[in-house]
Design a protein around this nucleic acid. Structure first.
Lengths: 122, 122
DNA sequence: CATGGTCGATTACGCGTGTAAATGATGTCG
DNA sequence: CGACATCATTTACACGCGTAATCGACCATG
């Protein structure tokens, strides 16, 4: 059911562009991960079994596409982090980063802009 | 080096209160996890080997304390999520949740208050 | 002093994961 | 048509993790 780290790297590629053949996926991954083609094939099969991607035969090869939506995955991961470490709420996470001075001016500006678009609570 | 899910449950207990004996840790976990005492002992040993906790002999037994700081752990986990899914930046994560309508009024109010305390970027 | 209880330490074991090679199927070119 | 190349599928294997039982040391009590 759950997507492992290595598998998620393959998903990232497919979310970025699809459908893709195995070879193209290997190429796209080449940057980040130094994987043998066989390794990627294994991950593709595991993702197929998990129902996270689909394969359509195109001539000699298969073309792979994501079934699992990126947004759903991102959300599940994020919510999990919030639940485990921040009582399930977003504000404490933001507070954590702001307390750590990890916010760049760009971040702050962006957050301010973002927050302004939110409905006022009164 | 890295703390697993089960191990982090033990860390949570120790961050909450320490030093604690194994038995107390089992009791504190009793709520969330239905673990045998032996299981907790294993986790404690693995955490010891990883250098995440320290044990001080107190009579017959050991008292355990965290060495790894909760804040450091929380930050590493959070940063990892940001890096993997949000280009390493916080604002896109907030944007994701706001787009999903996952922000409660309380969240919004809290965020607004929080943002106001941030240095203005000009 | 011997015996039983109580800790921590050691050992166990199945499963997922990261990483990849071997095998099998199928299309292509001479 | 047969050999080679090219895919995908199957098999492999070590390691960490979740979960725990067993072993060994040590202390208290009769």
């Amino acid at each position: 059911m759950s997507i492992s780290e290595a598998e998620s790297a393959v998903m990232q590629v497919l979310w970025n562009a699809h459908p893709l053949a195995a070879e193209e996926i290997v190429a796209a991954l080449g940057d980040a991960r130094q994987w043998q083609e066989a390794t990627v094939k294994t991950l593709l099969n595991r993702l197929l079994n998990k129902g996270a991607i689909a394969a359509v035969k195109e001539g000699r090869r298969y073309l792979y596409s994501p079934l699992l939506q990126r947004d759903a995955y991102v959300h599940a991961q994020s919510q999990d982090l919030l639940d485990r470490l921040f009582g399930g709420r977003l504000a404490p996470l933001v507070a954590h980063f702001s307390a750590r001075q990890k916010l760049s001016k760009k971040d702050i500006a962006e957050l301010k802009r973002l927050i302004e678009t939110l409905p006022d609570e009164r």
